[in-house]
Every structure is written in C-alpha cells, then in structure tokens.
Amino acid sequence: MDEIFLYVHPSSINNNHFYLSKDESHHFLKSLRGSIGDEVWLLDGTGLAFRAHVEKIDNFIVEGSIDKPYANYGESQKNIHLVIGLIKGKRMDMAIEKSVEFGVKSIHPVLFERSIKKTLNPERLTKVIVSSAKQTGRSIFPELKKPVKFLEWIEAYQDRNCFACHFEAKSKIENVVSSQTDDVMIIVGPEGDFSANEIALLKKYETPLVNLGPRRLRSESACISAIITASNIIEG
C-alpha cells in the first residue's frame, strides 16, 4: 500500500497514542479504505510527522499508537513565501494548491489596485492547504495570512528579501537569488498587472523586478514558474 498521510491535531496526541478527528477518520475509512493494522503517517501541520499504526476503530473514530516522530518531515531548510494578488474562481485554489506542493512556507494574499477579486474564503483555502500538504507529505502547513492592501503589505515587509514578477522586467530570478539565499518572498501581481503606483512602490523599496520568460503568464502559472525556479536555485 502507498504511504497514507493524515492530519492529526497536536492536542490529539498523548503518550504515543493518537486519535483522528471525525472528518479525518471518515477519510481514512471511506476514501482510503483503511483498516486496523495499517501503517500511517500523521502530520500535525507545525513541523512534526509521526509514523504510526492503527489499533482501534471506535464509533468510526480511528485510534492508534505512534512508532516514531520526525521533525521537519518533508520540509526544506530554505524558506519561500508567496505574495499573491487575489484571483477569481478556482484559479486561486490552483495557485494555493501548487504553491503548497512546491514548498512555500506562508501565503500572503494582497489587494492590488487592479485586483478584480476583492475577497477570499479563508476556510475553503485552508482546506486546500491541508489537502495539498497531505498529498505531498509535508509536516508544515503553510500559514494563510489575512488579505491586506499592497501598500500595507510592502511597508510591513520592506526589510525582507523579496522580488516581484513582471513581464517587462529585464532581470531573471537567477540574478536576484542564489544557493546562499535562505529566505525569499515572491510577489505575483493581479490579473490586471501592477499599476504605475505599485511599480513606483516596488522601486522605492528597492524590490527587484524579474521576468519569467517570453510569454505573458496567468497569475497562477506565474506563481508555479517562479516558485519552482527559485526553489531549484536556492536548494542548489
């Protein structure tokens, strides 16, 4: 059987014994066709994974014993963070899903001047994050920040190592990050691109602009391209 990754809340572990939530138990029993005796991997979302096995199913709640804990399971020592303008419909879900799969540590939704979408559903996106983290066996579930206006965001994070993706930029990602980079924030603008005011803000705070290639990409595609490229470079 393939590895089974399940979410377990830290409070549901005590003295090497665990139990799953009602929803996660249902997923294990019905979707994964799990049973007593199965080996499972438990992910607590804060950086710990546990190899465990199922010992009991009581009133459709799965319980068992932990065999061994693993710190930072499935995680890189390098940190990539995604700063993304709100996108309409399922494209936002895709951007979040793929960014988690490719290892981002936090996600910062931002309202740009040309953002078409103005709100998001944090509960739904949190479910996307957890599902994607389980799919890839990550022990850290990236934090989803509260949406803020771009001016507020850039003033709060002006001292961080950032770059912004822009079709007309001359530089490439390899010009602004290297294997020596430990932490970087990737800014992907809205569907309508950055406004002149936002470009001026980026320049004011000396944020490099990078080009992702000869084709103008959708926002969700730009996220994937930038994350993969930056990850390959900083991971060495």
Rank of each mutant, 00 (worst) to 15 (best):
I87T: 09
M92D: 06
D159A: 12
A95H: 00
I13A: 14
K117T: 14
E101H: 09
S115G: 04
E101D: 06
F112V: 11
F112N: 11
K134P: 00
N14G: 00
I107Q: 03
T229M: 14
K98H: 13
K204M: 11
I80V: 15
N161T: 05
H166M: 08
D2M: 02
P122G: 02
H166N: 10
K98G: 07
H166S: 09
F18Y: 08
A95F: 00
V104Q: 09
K56E: 15
L48E: 12
R216G: 01
K149G: 13
S99Q: 05
E152F: 09
E168P: 00
M1P: 10
I84R: 03
L48R: 13
A226M: 02
S132W: 06
T46V: 13
C223I: 11
I154C: 13
K127N: 14
D67F: 01
S25Y: 04
E39G: 00
I227Q: 02
M94N: 02
L120A: 04
K145T: 00
N14T: 09
A226Y: 01
D182K: 15
V83F: 04
L20Y: 08
E123A: 11
N175P: 01
K117A: 15
Q158Y: 09
N197E: 13
E39C: 02
D44G: 05
G85W: 01
I224Q: 10
M94Y: 10
A169K: 02
E3M: 10
D183L: 11
T181H: 09
E113P: 00
S31H: 04
A133L: 08
Q158D: 01
E63F: 12
P69D: 08
N211D: 08
S31A: 15
S231N: 15
I96R: 03
K149P: 00
K127A: 15
I84L: 14
N72C: 07
